[in-house]
Design a protein around this nucleic acid. Structure first.
Length: 303
DNA sequence: AAAAGCCCCTGGACGC
DNA sequence: TGCGTCCAGGGGCTTT
């Protein structure tokens, strides 16, 4: 269920284990996720180093020293967990106490039935990808061709990057009759938003998800006040969510080891029938279906 | 070209 | 307890 903040949280959690690490073993327990796994997947990775672990939109990008990048998408239900390797001193009471024992702190609470891909690093840590619904996928892309790759070439700007602004929204929205909800879910317009954060950003900016996208833009393509509010809300809601994920991340090793889910106080998402939290608003959160997905909004303060 | 619909897959929540 | 139905935070592909 990961959107940009969750993927970024996962990235930050995996980075200490994977960035700079040599992958000694790649265990693929089934030939496919959403798509077939890459040909000779294990041999293209085993023995090689992950140089950096980055993110673009909802993709994790592990740049390898081979010149390829491992691009991973978590789909709806993908999770990573880390099993830390620990050296333990030999226990003199045990029958074979002369052999230093090694153990994993196994903190993966997910169903091992759906552990599809397991990475082992040279230092002995393992990183497990678990995905019950298998909407996630992994591909290997030549790093030099990544930006032109089909998965990346059409993506809009990172909402927390320099390329994103009210002006950008206005340009993209000009003349578009789609509703704002669908416009913001479209990764070509802005990359990384999903159903939850679209709902949240629209609520913060006081804009109805049913409003048409062209109302973000004036005749001469400049942004309206609405576009200014929307761009600002998108940035703040994502920034806050990442911060909340980071605070959860500190606990992961003590909790269930899974990365990518965290509790976040949503203003509208999942709150159908509950009172709006906007200051001085007496509205009630409503759920409607747009593009086949639930939209939560306050009809009173979102116009 | 833009917009809408269908579909991939499994599991959990809920009603009977 | 068991079974059926609905729903899920993504997004590629097809149809209109």
């Amino acid at each position: 269920m990961p959107e940009l903040p969750e993927v970024e949280t996962v990235r930050r959690g995996l980075e200490p284990v994977l960035a700079g690490a040599i992958i000694t073993k790649l265990d693929c327990r089934r030939p496919d996720l959403r798509f077939p796994l890459p040909e000779r997947f294990a041999t293209r990775i085993e023995g090689h180093r992950i140089v950096t672990l980055g993110r673009r939109a909802k993709y994790l990008v592990a740049e390898l020293d081979t010149g390829e990048a491992l691009v991973m998408h978590l789909g709806m239900s993908g999770r990573f967990s880390i099993q830390h390797f620990e050296d333990q001193t030999a226990d003199p009471a045990s029958s074979n106490g002369q052999v230093a024992k090694a153990a994993f702190t196994h903190v993966n609470a997910t169903d091992p039935t759906h552990d599809h891909v397991v990475f082992t690093t040279q230092s002995g840590n393992t990183v497990t990808y678990n995905d019950p619904r298998r909407f996630g996928y992994m591909v290997l892309v030549e790093e030099s061709e990544r930006e032109t790759h089909k998965l990346f070439s059409g993506l809009g700007p990172e909402p927390l990057g320099n390329g994103f602004s009210a002006h950008h929204l206005a340009k993209r929205a000009h003349g578009r009759r789609v509703d704002l909800k669908a416009f913001l879910l479209d990764q070509r317009n802005v990359a990384g938003l999903g159903n939850i954060y679209v709902c949240e950003a629209l609520h913060r900016s006081g804009l109805s998800p049913l409003r048409r996208a062209f109302s973000l833009s004036t005749k001469n393509l400049s942004p309206t006040k609405r576009a200014e509010r929307l761009a600002a809300s998108i940035k703040t809601v994502l920034t806050e969510a990442i911060a909340a994920g980071g605070s959860t991340l500190r606990d992961y090793a003590h909790a269930d080891g899974s990365l990518g889910y965290f509790q976040h106080a949503f203003a509208v998402y999942g709150r159908e029938g509950e009172p709006c939290r906007t200051k001085d608003c007496t509205g009630t959160i409503r759920r409607v279906v747009q593009s086949g997905r639930s939209t939560f909004y306050c009809p009173k303060c979102q116009r």
